[in-house]
Amino acid sequence: MTPENRKAYWKANLRLALGCLVVWFVCSYLFGILLVEQLNAIRLGGFKLGFWFAQQGSIYTFVALIFFYAWRMNHIDQKYDVHEDD
C-alpha cells in the first residue's frame, strides 16, 4: 500500500461518494421540494409525481443508494488492494 496508491483510492472513493450525494440531493431536495409543483403536473398512477417523491420515492432511492455505494466500495477496496483481510 504505497502513498500514491492510497491517494488514488481516496480520490476514487470521493468521486463515488459525491456522485451518490448528487442523486441523494436530486431525489429529495430537487424532486421532493424545489421542483415539487412542476412535477405534480405529472402523474404516477394515482400519485402526483412530486408528492410521491416527497413521501415515497426519495426513501426508496436512499435505501438503494446506500447498498449501491457499499457494493461499489467493496470493488474499489479490492482494486486498490486496501480491503480488510477475511
Binding site: 461518494a17 451518490c20 441523494w24 429529495s28 408528492f51 413521501q55 436512499f62 443508494l65 446506500i66
Partner: peptide, 26 residues
C-alpha cells in the same frame, strides 16, 4: 402528524431517513 399536515409532513419522512445516506457515505 402526516395525516394532519399532508405534504408538509414530508419533512419528517425525508428528514428522518436521508441522514442514513450521509452516515453511510461520510
Amino acid at each position: 402528524l402526516i395525516a394532519f399536515l399532508g405534504y408538509d409532513g414530508s419533512v419528517y419522512l425525508m428528514g428522518w431517513t436521508g441522514g442514513y445516506v450521509l452516515l453511510a457515505l461520510f
